[in-house]
Design a protein around this nucleic acid. Structure first.
Lengths: 227, 227
DNA sequence: GACATATCCGAACGGTCGTACTATTTTGTC
DNA sequence: GACAAAATAGTACGACCGTTCGGATATGTC
């Protein structure tokens, strides 16, 4: 599976410890989304993975470090499966749309049985200061900046109104996403996805440059295409 | 304070136990909003109130019962300070607006240092089945129904478009509220309230009957005023 | 194969959790 | 003030928490 079976290399390619460490984090991520970051327990985690509590603990030197590593992995995965693919989509509205759609898909990803960990952490840690909270805040700030940045590009491409408040746009997107989680996970509303999509389309419509519609995407001319 | 000082009556007017019980719940509510419902601990609660753990515990027969009682009190308070006052406001858009504004105020109420307990519980309990979760769901369903009902009335009064999807309206409101909590509590964004207000006004504008504006509230004629 | 080191386990620590039992005190009624 | 009932305290329980430490075991290098 790894690079080579006979090349352990000097700085070590993929030590045993690192493998199990990642296996732990992968499972811990799924667990944390379901039972929360505070509710996540080293004993339970070790039991699930059929390891000793102390053996597992040795990989992280504290529970807080474990929580941070889980979030780091989650952040990296989110970038990988939401942000990066969206960057391959044409600039402007298509990319904004790709971001949003992939975000919803990420939230429902099978590897996240409890949903996006940052959403859950938003409400779980909002009153508990510390590095874990700080990390969540930073990550969400980055995400909102990504959304706002994509909207900014859409403005420059002439897809969105020139006077659009891009940060408000990101804020509104966040609201749609949160309402989606609320409706689908808590209320178990089968129309949750349709609701979120409708809300997003309505938002997009409000943001488009005058005269421009979804079915007539070339009506408006980019105002400042070259930078 | 109570009915009479010399009339304990047969079924007893306001026993000592009931007083402390309410004091416990009031404090527990504030605590639960900050540290979460799972994080809330009987020992901590007793310590805060300078009671013995067992003395406090005797008032509720389990932690789950305590959690339910806390939520019951929160629900009653929310009705008292959000729903009931809004019902005193004229039907239609003004009442819808009153509901939303009082909702935001309730979320920031000083007696709720950690914000609306139902918001927090939404994400904390979404994956933990049981009566506590059920209670939260029921309460939020009632709230959404209240919002949708107020919108329905606004449609009948001719304030809102006749083809408005009132449930989608309630859903969108929920999103604005969630984004508000996200921005204010987690991100500590000072513009959070302005963002929420702007989002709500934009939503209202989209819902209004054609030709009707905020500054010209009498442009449209009620279509089905009676009933 | 020898050896150093990385990895993992077992047991144990002090703490806190929710809960159960038994006193003791306080309250309300006569 | 006597007396029953209600309210509170005290103590203890088993379970699990995060963490420590020393020793067993596996891994990678020579």
């Amino acid at each position: 599976m790894a690079a080579s079976a006979r090349t352990p290399a000097k700085p070590r390619a993929r030590s045993k410890g690192e493998q199990t460490r990642e296996a732990i984090l992968a499972h811990a991520l799924g667990l944390a989304t379901r039972i929360g970051f505070e509710g996540l327990t080293i004993g339970r985690l070790a039991e699930d993975l059929r390891m000793s509590k102390s053996g597992l603990f040795a990989h992280f030197r504290s529970k807080e470090a474990l929580q941070l590593d889980i979030l780091r992995m989650a952040g990296a995965r989110m970038v990988e499966s939401v942000v990066k693919p969206a960057l391959a989509v044409p600039r402007g509205e298509p990319r904004v749309r790709a971001l949003f759609e992939r975000w919803l898909a990420w939230e429902q990803s099978p590897s996240l049985p409890g949903g996006c960990p940052f959403m859950a952490a938003s409400f779980e840690l909002d009153d508990r200061p510390g590095p874990v909270r700080d990390f969540v805040v930073q990550n969400l700030r980055d995400w909102m900046d990504t959304l706002a940045g994509a909207a900014r590009i859409a403005v420059n491409e002439g897809h969105f109104r020139a006077d659009l408040d891009c940060e408000q746009f990101a804020h509104d997107c966040q609201g749609i996403g949160l309402a989606f989680v609320h409706a689908s996970r808590l209320m178990r509303d089968p129309r949750a996805h349709a609701r979120a999509t409708l809300a997003f389309e309505t938002l997009l419509q409000r943001c488009r440059a005058p005269g421009r519609t979804a079915s007539n995407p070339s009506a408006a001319v980019p105002s400042g295409r070259r930078r």
